[in-house]
Write a protein that binds this DNA or RNA. Structure first.
Lengths: 355, 355
DNA sequence: TTGTAAGCGTTATCAT
DNA sequence: ATGATAACGCTTACAA
């Protein structure tokens, strides 16, 4: 008897491409649906049947086609990261956190930088969401402060979690840090070291993180009952260069501040740079504290005292929040929404110089 | 006359979800296939028909469902980036380059870090390629040096382009830089400044880039007819910390080298750090050159003389290579495959100290 | 517990 | 130049 190609059970698996659910079904003598149940870990399934199907799956090296699942399920296996490149290290840390959360799942991370400031921002994001239809997106600050984007996600039926320096949204959609308190603690530390003339390099206008950190600075001064002239506050835009420029303003003052808190490490590195160019010794003549604890903090000289911002954990939590409900209902653990920063003491702070 | 729901041309578009190709087809009075042709810019199409359909598409705000396209086409609109985190800044620069290339297209970038060294490396990559079915992938060094991955891509029918410090593959699948020559030029520069005792901090064993840069170093010495003891070569693993360790070895030597070439900026920053801890002045007592021209090079003190590696352009070219053939046939411009690095002179090099 | 039939929204084949 | 019909591989009703 000659077996016609269409009826030969072994043939399907041999076809050009990869084995499909049909091949598995045929070879294990069950229906597609049963195979589907095995893939999706349906509880109502004969253990023996499950075993048999799984054996065939292994032998065939069958991998469910995610595109087909995506079409049937109406959702993609993608987690998006939407950001406006607030700074390189932060973006990378966030990516790391998200990837940690995606580890072992079928999800992949798709990165979408956009241009805050561009008039087409929302169209851009919409375009991305419509084209890729990610399962959910993590939105980085400062973009996360834009309510329009959150609304857009809602409108397009895309899950989202915002990251930020303050609670901007409900717990399901937000992962936040306590920047204000952490900065207050850092400035308090400077005060405890005897510093009375403390400069602030604030972050750019319009950034929630910048505002929070500035408030923390002011909180600490208020708590210590010191009142400082406005000239001790300079503004930067979170870049190294802006840190230099701001530092130069502060270092030109008379009397000169004996300590400077910069709202991120990049700007703090700029302060160190500017001081060095003027021959001002750190920490002997000037103490400096940054924020973020990015690698640069440990790499410059002297190593920078800074506030460690648990950005990787925050990103991981954000992604896990997105994925919550994916696994079996039972195992879903509520992800914390508030992450605490803390001061990391290195060599850039010393007691106030005498005289 | 009562219009039955199924025949009401306007109804489909109102349904719960988004409008589909069927809605567009019905409303514009053509078949699905014709709409498909409009979407895919098929050349054989009546201009007038195209206009009509496009009008409906606009009015409806129709966006083709990417899952369905992916299923039908067997490929996703994704460009993958496969890397083993060679270093943060490099990964980020590559992402930037790829995204520049993807600008304005429907493609998105999906990032996949893997663990070189893991025995499951190839399974990992296979898993990723099978699940996400990216249109193509860019492979970063040192992973790009693994021929197994390239073979895997071929086997799975996934386009790929490797990035590296030497031509490892044919022009269609490779974007390379001339590290060897660039390093030779840098070392020659040190020699021209009077340095005779030049230390090398090599990159880790097994990295093609490390080998190429080391060869460049040796080329320059050979050209200058100087022969150095092996002790002037230390090995690092491209990290800041390993740069410190290697620098300490070199700075312990008697006589002490008056210049050090480090195979990347991170390690060069480590050299600067180590020298400072010992009170060795840079560049007065020690000249340092790095490689990459990452931001850290300009941010440390003194600013680092380094070799600028056009990594962003390389990544952009890699992605464009992947996309080649996507657009109309006519406009495809061959992307260059070899990118030239060049020396960026800053303040970390000075003529050899006298005595 | 398992199977059947009907989609999901698109593209490909092969007509016309 | 355009259309009817069958894939693409999977899931969700709804039966059995």
């Amino acid at each position: 008897m000659v077996t016609s190609p269409d009826e030969d059970p072994a043939r399907g698996a041999q076809r050009a491409g990869k084995p499909t659910i049909n091949d598995v079904a045929r070879l294990s003598g069950v229906s597609k649906k049963t195979v589907s149940r095995v893939i999706n870990r349906s509880p109502l399934l004969n253990a023996e049947t499950r075993e048999r199907v799984q054996k065939v799956i292994r032998e065939l090296g069958y991998v469910p086609n995610p595109q087909a699942r995506a079409l049937a399920l109406g959702t993609n296996f993608l987690i998006g990261l939407i950001h406006d490149n607030p700074n390189a290290q932060m973006v990378l840390n966030v990516q790391q956190g998200i990837l940690e959360a995606l580890q072992g799942t079928d999800f992949a991370m798709v990165v979408r930088p956009v241009d805050r400031g561009s008039a087409a921002l929302l169209d851009d994001v919409r375009h991305f969401l419509e084209r890729q239809r990610p399962y959910g997106v993590v939105i980085l600050p400062p973009l996360s402060e834009n309510d329009g984007i959150a609304r857009l996600c809602l409108e397009l039926g895309c899950r989202y979690v915002r990251m930020g320096s303050a609670a901007l949204d409900d717990a399901d959609h937000m992962v936040a840090s306590n920047d204000r308190e952490a900065v207050a603690e850092a400035v308090q530390f400077l005060y405890d070291q005897g510093h009375k003339l403390i400069g602030l390099i604030a972050g750019p206008h319009g950034f929630r993180s910048a505002a929070e950190r500035r408030r923390g600075f002011e909180d600490a001064l208020a708590a210590a009952s010191i009142k400082l002239p406005r000239s001790l506050i300079a503004e930067g835009n979170y870049t190294f260069e802006s840190g230099i420029a701001a530092a130069e303003k502060l270092l030109d003052l008379t009397p000169r501040p004996t300590a400077i808190f910069a709202s991120n490490d990049e700007m703090a590195a700029g302060v160190v740079h500017a001081a060095r160019e003027r021959g001002i010794g750190i920490p002997d003549e000037l103490s400096v504290i940054g924020f973020d604890d990015t690698p640069i903090a440990g790499h410059i000289w002297p190593p920078l005292t800074t506030v460690r911002w648990p950005i990787v954990s925050m990103a991981r939590a954000a992604a896990l929040k997105l994925l919550a409900g994916q696994g079996e209902a039972g195992e879903s653990v509520a992800e914390p929404s508030m992450f605490l920063s803390r001061l990391v003491k290195r060599a850039s702070v010393a007691p106030r110089p005498k005289g």
